[in-house]
Design a binder for these strands. Structure first.
Lengths: 198, 198
DNA sequence: GGGAGGGCTGCGGATATCCACAATAGCCCG
DNA sequence: CGGGCTATTGTGGATATCCGCAGCCCTCCC
């Protein structure tokens, strides 16, 4: 189980939530402002975010926007005592995971947080696989990438050679290097690797 | 542009919305109850749904649930004068496209509807392609499907032959039939066809 | 009983792919 | 300057794939 990050400028609420979640074995880290969290945030931070909307300084919504700008993928649950429908709808459409009004039901909130944490774990597992693929792609030379694209597009070596203006033998060499670097044995495996990961 | 289906038991609102959308060249069909729409609904119905939540008889939310149960893919926009945050959040998490409170801004509503219609059109185009693939898969015999799966899994003919306990030549024949019926020329193309469509 | 369709197999040849061995050439870096 | 990386090409042979031609078996159906 990864960590729940609670961002709320009200220490009493942070403490109450911290107690609630720790009693359910959910690791918690509290942040007393959006600014503090934003500064500490790194792309490898895992878990989920419980975000109060109304805070001194930067609001929870603004923090959310900034995190989106930094390609943060952590699921975000908004917590608010002043929520209205347009804000909730906008937040969810932008990709927020959930939106909970105070006062909330403890069990329900815990369920939603656990749900979000599980989602994050799955997402990270998927991305880890894709990152591995991306890392292998990064080791390819320009020519190898070109050849790989054409191979994955289903072209025969002969056609690829024509298209790149090089000999078939050279295509074979590049193709072989691509297979080796991408750790696959057939064009089909390579295609699956690249189309399943986008 | 496909059709906007307005479900609202208040004739005055249906008329007002009808006038609004027709003035923006959005074709509209009005329904005076969830029951009426549900009865008329067919899987090939295209466009989007503008759904009032509070109605006599079946509510908009219940209609939405029933449509989901029937695998309806039309984008749904809820319209309500009694919306509260939990309902909006639940609806959006279940897959509703949008949630708009009355009174609404005409231009904004029109924008959202047009957005939803465009989404539906794209989605239908995608599904049409997938349906074509599914139709071709349906013409395959059992043996051909088995061979196809192994081909797409990247196995060599030799391995497939072993695995199915038949000769390589037979695998070649099935493989060739699969390519013909699926209208592809290489295993890579076949893989793309099947992995992009799920 | 004969025809249609699906499944299985062999033969042989045309293509394609995979690979070891070998070589040329440009570029960058210590 | 020599070494490493990239790109390029060739020869020749082992594998794999693609395909037409031919034949056999079984089931379902008219």
């Amino acid at each position: 189980m990864t960590t729940l990050h609670i961002v709320d400028d009200d220490e009493a609420i942070r403490d109450a939530l911290g107690w609630l979640f720790q009693s359910r074995s959910v690791p918690v880290i509290g942040w007393d402002s959006a600014e503090a969290f934003l500064e500490a945030w790194t792309p490898d931070m895992a878990g989920c975010l419980l975000l109060d909307i109304r805070m001194e300084g930067m609001s929870g919504l603004e923090l959310f926007d900034r995190l989106l700008g930094r390609a943060c993928r952590m699921p975000v649950i908004f917590l608010t005592g002043h929520g209205d429908v347009p804000i909730a709808v906008a937040a969810l459409k932008k990709g927020a995971r959930d939106f909970v009004e105070k006062p909330f039901n403890d069990n329900e909130l815990v369920d939603r947080v656990i749900d979000a944490l599980a989602f994050d774990a799955e997402q990270r597992a998927r991305e880890a696989g894709q990152a591995g693929v991306a890392a292998r792609v990064a080791t390819l030379t320009q020519r190898e990438k070109q050849v790989m694209e054409l191979v994955v597009a289903g072209r025969l070596n002969k056609v690829i050679a024509d298209q790149l203006g090089i000999s078939m033998r050279t295509v074979e060499v590049h193709r072989s290097h691509v297979f080796e670097k991408m750790r696959v044995k057939t064009a089909v495996e390579l295609t699956r690797l690249l189309t399943s990961a986008g």
